[in-house]
């Protein structure tokens, strides 16, 4: 049973048992434009919720990606090194960024669900 939550910085996090998978939303990839490189965190790094831990580079600019929940990085999406455009094509699928082991799974409870995130994006437009 997996559950998807969203941040105000347009990251998504999918909680799946002991692991949390993190990426950016379709809205975010569309706003960034063509992604040409993703700088991913070191495996084993401990990050706090809200900490900048990856950078996504489009043709135009570099943007920080923040950890939606705190924890230890356990895996990064190595496919992005070969094909960063996965982020544009499948932002909430094959274009995921990294996985972490949440320190406190309850942290995710404070994030938005899908309906709340869509309402948030609408309110920003």
């Amino acid at each position: 049973m997996s559950e998807m939550k969203f941040t105000r910085d347009h990251e998504w996090v999918r909680l799946d048992g002991d692991a949390a998978t993190i990426g950016i939303t379709d809205h975010a990839q569309n706003a960034l434009g063509d992604v040409v490189f993703v700088d991913l965190p070191e495996i084993g790094r401990e990050v706090a919720a809200g900490e900048a831990c990856a950078v996504v580079e489009s043709v135009k600019a570099a943007s920080d990606i923040y950890a939606p929940v705190g924890g230890r990085i356990v895996e990064v999406n190595s496919a992005l090194a070969e094909d960063p455009s996965l982020v544009n094509r499948e932002p909430i699928g094959e274009g995921w960024f990294f996985k972490l082991e949440p320190r406190d799974p309850a942290e995710a409870a404070g994030l938005m669900d899908e309906a709340a995130y869509h309402a948030f994006v609408e309110s920003e437009a």
Binding site: D9, H10, E11, I24, A28, A31, L32, V56, K60, A61, A62, S63, D64, I65, Y66
Partner: peptide, 8 residues
């Protein structure tokens, strides 16, 4: 996600 280069 935060753009580091846009100007206000």
């Amino acid at each position: 996600m935060a753009d580091s280069t846009d100007q206000t």
